[in-house]
């Protein structure tokens, strides 16, 4: 089992390296930091621009291979370089990574857990009211783009706020700036801000997971081993929970790694729409600003997140399915 996970981990490290490299090469060959200086007034001299770009390792006159080598040399030592504005990319990551991770972790956990439970229960109650309602809801969520979900939630929240006359939901920023309300007050304020973006992410996850889990559960619900468990003296509920759900979770765990990529994309929109200064909104801003190093850094962050998710799904898989552990 340890060997199995170590091998997977080694694979992932290679993949992260490749993903980040491709992202850097793509960004460095398509984005043009030089263009940023063209609109400045007074317009700096070309020599000045070159000097500045050289300092930032962004000069398109330097061969790509050379820029890449310099960049890679820094990255290996843990330095992702400078932004186009000559600030540290690392500092920016420190500031923003936590914001995104909070959003991703809560969004994923809430979405996946509710999706799995609702999907599994829907399978148990196949074609009953609960199943039909949850199926309808899941298909509705699947057919609406993440952006529309996020904006619709804002609209609904605004309406609720107006109707109740109090500000229940906050939908701009991560917290109210300049608020001084002690620890609990700040926490409450943060939660108020977090509800909507987290929900926007979680809903998409719920939809995908509930459909998948429902199908997996239907496959095992009528299986012989569930009947054996009941014949032993387990009640139907207990047999389904302990024997069917446990077995039906195995494929879902693999599925988790697959959908995580789309979740990352969803995060980008959500952060932008709700004005959260996370990694997702940063990557959009960086592309607009031709900020090669930042784009590469965010790509690396996303690759690492996906790697962590995949690794987690491997660990869960090995824990759930003894056949992996034994062979």
């Amino acid at each position: 089992m340890g060997k199995f996970l170590a091998r997977r981990l080694a694979n992932y490290v290679v993949l992260v390296f490749l993903a980040t490299t491709f992202a850097y090469l793509l960004a460095a060959s398509t984005l043009s930091p030089r263009a940023n200086y063209a609109e400045m007034s007074p317009r700096p001299t070309e020599a000045a621009v070159d000097a500045q770009l050289d300092r930032l390792n962004l000069n398109d006159k330097t061969p790509l291979a050379e820029r890449y080598t310099v960049w890679l040399g820094d990255v290996v030592t843990g330095d992702f370089g400078r932004t186009v504005r000559d600030t540290s990319v690392n500092e920016e990551i420190q500031r923003r990574a936590g914001v995104s991770i909070r959003l991703i972790v809560f969004g994923t956990v809430i979405g996946a857990v509710s999706g799995v439970l609702i999907g599994a229960y829907g399978a148990v109650r196949q074609y009953r009211v609960f199943d039909r309602v949850s199926t309808g809801a899941a298909f509705f969520m699947l057919s609406v783009p993440a952006v529309v979900v996020a904006i619709s939630l804002q609209v609904i929240a605004a309406a609720i706020n107006e109707w109740t006359g109090t500000t229940i939901f906050q939908y701009a920023g991560e917290y109210t700036t300049g608020l001084d309300a002690g620890f609990w007050g700040t926490l409450g304020n943060r939660i108020q801000h977090a509800i909507l973006p987290t929900l926007a992410l979680a809903l998409g996850q719920f939809a995908a997971f509930s459909r998948y889990q429902r199908n997996m559960m239907l496959d095992v619900i009528g299986s012989d081993f569930v009947r054996t468990a009941m014949a032993k003296g387990l009640t139907r509920r207990k047999a389904l929970f302990k024997h069917a759900l446990r077995t039906a979770l195995i494929p879902t765990v693999t599925y988790f790694a697959f959908v995580f990529g789309s979740l990352m994309a969803g995060t980008t929109f959500t952060e932008k729409i709700y004005g959260w200064n996370g990694m997702g909104s940063w990557v959009i801003d960086s592309i607009v600003k031709n900020d090669v190093n930042s784009v590469a850094a965010v790509s690396c962050f996303m690759a690492v997140c996906i790697m962590v998710a995949s690794f987690l799904s491997d660990v869960l898989y090995a824990w759930l399915d003894p056949r992996v552990r034994v062979s």
């Binding site: 081993f225 446990r246 077995t247």
Partner: peptide
């Protein structure tokens, strides 16, 4: 009252010893 089923291959839960 206990029961033994036909197909032993699928009768045991694969994830428990």
């Amino acid at each position: 009252i206990a029961m033994v089923f036909q197909d032993p291959l699928s009768g045991l839960t694969p994830v428990y010893t």
